[in-house]
Amino acid sequence: GHYRIRINGREFEIRGISEEEIRHLEEALRNGADEKILKEIVDRLRG
């Protein structure tokens, strides 16, 4: 998958993330885990 997200007015492209991972992120966001989720995304993109 290849997705664009906007955070604090800046747009980011996220590549190589699966539909299942996105559902997991959405679930966590609904549970209020904003900073933790951003850290997970950044860590994943770093490799």
Rank of each mutant, 00 (worst) to 15 (best):
residue 1 G to V: 03
residue 1 G to D: 13
residue 2 H to M: 04
residue 2 H to Y: 13
residue 2 H to V: 09
residue 3 Y to Q: 12
residue 3 Y to S: 09
residue 3 Y to M: 15
residue 3 Y to A: 14
residue 4 R to P: 06
residue 4 R to K: 13
residue 4 R to W: 05
residue 7 I to P: 00
residue 8 N to T: 01
residue 8 N to C: 10
residue 8 N to F: 06
residue 9 G to C: 04
residue 10 R to G: 03
residue 10 R to D: 14
residue 10 R to H: 15
residue 10 R to N: 11
residue 11 E to Y: 08
residue 11 E to A: 02
residue 11 E to M: 07
residue 12 F to D: 00
residue 12 F to P: 00
residue 12 F to T: 01
residue 13 E to R: 01
residue 14 I to R: 00
residue 14 I to S: 00
residue 15 R to Q: 12
residue 15 R to T: 12
residue 15 R to G: 06
residue 15 R to F: 14
residue 16 G to V: 10
residue 16 G to M: 08
residue 17 I to D: 02
residue 18 S to C: 04
residue 18 S to H: 04
residue 18 S to K: 05
residue 19 E to I: 13
residue 19 E to V: 12
residue 19 E to Y: 10
residue 19 E to M: 12
residue 19 E to N: 10
residue 20 E to W: 07
residue 20 E to P: 06
residue 20 E to Y: 06
residue 21 E to Q: 13
residue 22 I to Y: 08
residue 23 R to Y: 12
residue 23 R to W: 08
residue 24 H to I: 13
residue 24 H to A: 09
residue 24 H to C: 13
residue 25 L to M: 04
residue 25 L to T: 01
residue 25 L to D: 00
residue 26 E to R: 04
residue 26 E to L: 10
residue 27 E to F: 04
residue 27 E to S: 10
residue 27 E to D: 13
residue 28 A to C: 08
residue 28 A to M: 14
residue 29 L to P: 00
residue 30 R to V: 07
residue 30 R to K: 12
residue 31 N to C: 13
residue 31 N to G: 10
residue 31 N to I: 10
residue 31 N to T: 13
residue 32 G to R: 05
residue 32 G to W: 06
residue 32 G to N: 09
residue 33 A to V: 14
residue 33 A to R: 07
residue 33 A to T: 12
residue 33 A to W: 13
residue 34 D to T: 13
residue 34 D to G: 14
residue 35 E to M: 11
residue 36 K to T: 12
residue 36 K to M: 13
residue 37 I to S: 07
residue 37 I to T: 12
residue 37 I to P: 01
residue 37 I to Y: 13
residue 37 I to Q: 11
residue 38 L to D: 01
residue 39 K to V: 14
residue 39 K to E: 13
residue 40 E to P: 03
residue 40 E to I: 10
residue 40 E to M: 11
residue 40 E to T: 11
residue 41 I to P: 00
residue 41 I to H: 03
residue 41 I to N: 01
residue 41 I to M: 13
residue 42 V to W: 11
residue 42 V to K: 02
residue 42 V to H: 04
residue 43 D to E: 09
residue 43 D to M: 04
residue 45 L to P: 03
residue 46 R to L: 15
residue 47 G to N: 12
residue 47 G to Q: 12
residue 47 G to M: 11
residue 47 G to C: 14
